[in-house]
Design a protein around this nucleic acid. Structure first.
Lengths: 229, 229
DNA sequence: CGACTAATTATTGTCAACAATTTGCAATCG
DNA sequence: CGATTGCAAATTGTTGACAATAATTAGTCG
């Protein structure tokens, strides 16, 4: 639906100012890999690219620095952040704790319609698995976890969770996120949704935490495979 | 030791640039209450105050916006963020989960020396309680939780935790944080340190989470008291 | 006298130019 | 021939000025 998209961009332009727009744009550039990991990002280049001056670019870069997508060295520039396995491990440690909270809250608060939404996404992921469409599966996987954290009904939790997982997205560019075997991953999703549908808060929390732990383990296996080759 | 202080300031000026310096300065202004809650912060005013132009000020404000200490309205300016009880509740929800993780990790990883450090701070808090020095107690309380999250040995967790609790500090300005009865609070601290010393990860996690929950309850009581009067 | 409108002022948003710093290259010296 | 020093280009850090928007005040009309 192009109207909705146009509406949101309009809203963005009206409410947010240039730096905010530029920020999400640079974010996309990084997450799509157009700005390579570790690469220096040139302020002037971005400025000409977006047709602005360097001021808004710098403001946007400060925000991205705060969200740890880039790091900045004085007088040398900002670089797309390279995330180590050790740091990914740290993130997963926190994520597991948050996922447990999310599972519990969603089981307590989700409406029947929201539960159906979750089940629908899981079904779509099954279909994507059948067609071996890994790209589609990945997008749906993101959507699933986005829905979950939203349905937890805690804006600050959402914000914290998104900030953390954004760092993990950098890992996807190295092909280390959810490496291989995504059919297994979806069975975990199903178990989570079942627990939520049964209003089993403790169980949903435990299962979602477990899912995060399994995801972490998959990352480790993928990392071990790539480094050993 | 002035030399050490001079060294750190030198490092600060060398490594960080003006916006970073300005950022912590404005942060202090907010946290000390010199910039009142809800008040609009004037860019030009800050610029003349710090002897810079508005550019660095704006960059600093974007960072503070990202850390939710200020909010920004287009063409109207940035305002010191006013935090509602509902939002504080959201933060506490996340904080409880993180505190559990922190307690567990510290119990697993803390060195004997670190455990002594924690016990020492608790003893100091006891002393402050005896002298009814609430300001000192509050500072020590912050230090205690800072040490804890540091000793958990997870940089990303530290970052996430600090970001969250920074929002709670805004509440202190309204006198709603740990309102009254801080002797009780310290007995909770003692229990946590005991569990850590006993290397009881699960117990320390449970106790630290409980401590956060109690802190939240104290906030609610303080809020109820001020609004009812 | 109150309410609406228009000008004025203050403040933010953006820009282009200047200063300071780093980096790459070349020339020089041991 | 390698290392080092000095120069030149590129890039970041910072600034002051200009444009656009919101807040305020004065003035006018009903």
């Amino acid at each position: 639906m192009p109207q909705a998209a146009a509406l949101t961009t309009l809203q963005l332009v009206q409410s947010n100012s240039l730096p905010a727009l530029v920020q999400v744009e640079i974010e996309q550039l990084i997450l799509r890999g157009e700005l390579a990991i570790g690469q220096r990002v040139n302020e002037s280049e971005l400025a000409t690219r977006f047709g602005t001056s360097r001021g808004p670019i710098r403001e946007a870069l400060r925000v991205l620095e705060e969200s740890r997508l880039v790091r900045s060295e004085k007088n040398r520039g900002v670089f797309v952040r390279e995330i180590s396995i050790a740091e990914a491990d740290e993130i997963y440690d926190v994520r597991e704790a948050l996922d447990q909270l999310i599972g519990q809250r969603v089981a307590e608060r989700a409406t029947p319609e929201q539960v159906r939404d979750l089940a629908a996404v899981v079904a779509e992921m099954d279909a994507a698995t059948g067609m071996h469409d890994i790209k589609c599966y990945h997008a749906l996987n993101l959507k699933f976890h986005d829905l979950l954290v939203d349905f937890a009904g805690n804006a600050r939790l959402t914000e914290t969770y998104r900030l953390l997982t954004k760092g993990l997205l950098l890992f996807r560019l190295r092909g280390l996120q959810d490496g291989g075997g995504f059919a297994v991953s979806n069975s975990e999703h199903k178990a989570v949704v079942d627990a939520i549908a049964a209003r089993d808060g403790a169980g949903a929390g435990r299962l979602l935490r477990l899912h995060a732990a399994e995801s972490r383990a998959r990352m480790h296996r993928a990392a071990a495979a790539t480094t050993s080759i």
